[in-house]
Simulated scan of single mutants.
Amino acid sequence: MHHYQQQLKVRRIYTIIAIAVFLIALFASLNFANNANSGKFFERLPYLFDFIKNFVPDSPMEIVRAMFDLPSPYADGSLKYDYTSDRHYITDSVYIPNFFYQLVITLNIALVSTIIGTTIAFVLCFFASTNLVGAGAVRWFTRRIMEVMRAFPEIVIAGLLTAILSIGPIAAIIAITVHTIGALGKLFFEVVENADMRPDEGLRAAGASWVERVRFAIVPQVLPNFVSYALLRAEINVRASTIIGAVGGGGIGEVFRLSIGRDHAAKTYAIVILLLIAIIAVDQFSAWLRRRLIGQQSFEFGRGAA
């Protein structure tokens, strides 16, 4: 009992020391950030919500008009109230509102990037798995490639590519695809390494080739997890394509940057609402598709253990 009390006392001392070190590091980091911010962070903190309070449209209906490219009664010839000039006409009378059109571009960037990135990651992950290729040069080289691909954020890759390929969705697609390959490749090969190898041993004893062993022994086991990770990555890529749009990748991120930079409140709120609706819709569709592909029983409480 005395020994337990002594150990408990030592653990409490270590906990207090750890908390103190954490608080000191946190304070030092905040102080450094404040100095790097010209010493204005703490001074401006009480005014944090002033921008939101002052950044309001002339009328709530202006948000609807900006969203659907309808004429504004406040039109004065400036871009702030010019909602109709950016319409994308399908026929002489039918058009797609500009923000919806830009949102489709953003979703298209995310979808194409996810499909290409998932396909390449699917192929590479088997060459990076220790239980399939051992610890040789192929595994080492494949893993290093994927590490390089996910080492830099998508926005950094996109910034480099826009300087080479010019501004547009192509740079965004390549940037998100590269990061998707690196991120999904790691998740995929970790799933493969946790697969049951008894089916593989049986196929090997029957004389199956390496490709046949992967196809019939490994893929059926790991495919449900692969689908879940790919759908999760699709949701992430929607957000990434929006952010990349702000640095020249096209899509709704670019028009959002322009509208907020020009103090166009109605347009900004319309874009924010569209983004929220789109992200919620993508999340719900992803959850529905995951249930359809994997099976409803996997999501029912207590069924997995049975």
Score class of each variant (00 low, 15 high):
residue 2 H to F: 08
residue 3 H to Y: 13
residue 4 Y to P: 04
residue 5 Q to N: 13
residue 5 Q to F: 14
residue 5 Q to R: 12
residue 6 Q to G: 04
residue 7 Q to H: 06
residue 7 Q to G: 00
residue 8 L to S: 07
residue 12 R to T: 10
residue 12 R to A: 06
residue 13 I to F: 13
residue 13 I to D: 00
residue 13 I to R: 01
residue 13 I to W: 09
residue 13 I to H: 02
residue 14 Y to K: 00
residue 14 Y to M: 00
residue 16 I to E: 05
residue 17 I to H: 01
residue 17 I to T: 08
residue 18 A to Y: 08
residue 19 I to L: 13
residue 20 A to E: 02
residue 20 A to V: 12
residue 21 V to M: 02
residue 25 A to M: 10
residue 28 A to P: 07
residue 29 S to T: 13
residue 29 S to M: 08
residue 29 S to H: 09
residue 29 S to F: 14
residue 32 F to M: 07
residue 33 A to V: 12
residue 36 A to T: 11
residue 36 A to M: 15
residue 39 G to I: 01
residue 39 G to Y: 07
residue 40 K to Y: 09
residue 40 K to F: 08
residue 41 F to E: 00
residue 42 F to T: 11
residue 43 E to K: 13
residue 43 E to Q: 14
residue 45 L to S: 09
residue 45 L to Q: 06
residue 46 P to G: 05
residue 48 L to H: 01
residue 49 F to W: 09
residue 50 D to Q: 04
residue 50 D to N: 12
residue 52 I to D: 11
residue 52 I to C: 02
residue 61 M to H: 00
residue 62 E to D: 12
residue 62 E to F: 00
residue 64 V to S: 00
residue 65 R to N: 04
residue 66 A to W: 00
residue 66 A to P: 04
residue 68 F to T: 06
residue 70 L to Y: 01
residue 72 S to V: 10
residue 74 Y to F: 07
residue 75 A to V: 11
residue 76 D to A: 12
residue 76 D to C: 14
residue 76 D to Q: 11
residue 80 K to V: 02
residue 80 K to Y: 03
residue 80 K to N: 07
residue 80 K to E: 02
residue 84 T to I: 15
residue 90 I to T: 00
residue 90 I to F: 13
residue 92 D to K: 13
residue 92 D to E: 10
residue 93 S to N: 14
residue 93 S to F: 10
residue 94 V to T: 00
residue 94 V to N: 01
residue 95 Y to P: 10
residue 96 I to P: 00
residue 96 I to N: 05
residue 97 P to E: 07
residue 97 P to D: 05
residue 98 N to W: 14
residue 99 F to K: 15
residue 99 F to V: 15
residue 100 F to Q: 10
residue 102 Q to T: 12
residue 103 L to T: 15
residue 104 V to F: 03
residue 104 V to Y: 01
residue 106 T to I: 09
residue 107 L to R: 08
residue 108 N to H: 03
residue 109 I to H: 01
residue 109 I to Y: 03
residue 110 A to W: 13
residue 111 L to V: 15
residue 112 V to Y: 12
residue 112 V to R: 09
residue 114 T to R: 04
residue 115 I to R: 04
residue 116 I to E: 09
residue 117 G to H: 05
residue 118 T to H: 05
residue 120 I to S: 02
residue 123 V to L: 12
residue 124 L to T: 06
residue 125 C to A: 14
residue 125 C to I: 09
residue 126 F to M: 12
residue 127 F to E: 04
residue 127 F to R: 04
residue 129 S to Y: 10
residue 129 S to G: 06
residue 130 T to C: 01
residue 131 N to S: 08
residue 132 L to N: 12
